[in-house]
């Protein structure tokens, strides 16, 4: 099970044909206290790079893009009650949604952990 990252700071973890998506720990730090997460409805078809969710801190709202294409099969209901999970467990309990991959090849273009780390450091 590998984790991959986008330049827009989403992560995706794939098991079989199911991908779990969230925002990176780095992104969580940049956002500050997350107060609300708007998640996609189950059944929605997402396109890679297109808007999938919205994450809000007190003074900022940011779009979260789908790192890969697919159909949403689950949204993290826990985030509705406790959006702070994004801060405390960005890459674990604070996941956003799961989707069924429609084009696994899209994963190839994403960064692995080391590449993402270097990317973030390069941005700073």
């Amino acid at each position: 099970m590998t984790i991959k990252y986008t330049k827009d700071h989403e992560w995706v973890r794939v098991e079989g044909d199911v991908a779990t998506v969230g925002v990176s720990d780095h992104a969580q730090h940049q956002l500050g206290d997350v107060v609300f997460v708007e998640l996609p409805d189950v059944g929605r078809q997402l396109q890679q790079g297109k808007e999938a969710a919205v994450v809000e801190s007190v003074k900022a709202a940011s779009d979260v893009y789908a790192p890969v294409s697919g159909e949403v099969i689950e949204a993290n209901a826990d985030l509705e009650n406790d959006p702070s999970l994004v801060n405390t467990g960005a890459e674990t309990t604070g996941w956003f949604f799961k989707l069924r991959l429609s084009n696994p090849a899209e994963l190839d273009a994403l960064m692995d952990e080391a590449a993402y780390k270097a990317f973030v450091e390069g941005q700073a």
Binding site: F36, E56, S57, V58, K59, A60, A61, D63
Partner: peptide
């Protein structure tokens, strides 16, 4: 509160 709905944050959205 919930001002992320508003124009001064979300602008065209």
């Amino acid at each position: 509160t919930l001002s992320t709905r508003e124009q001064h944050i979300r602008r065209e959205k």
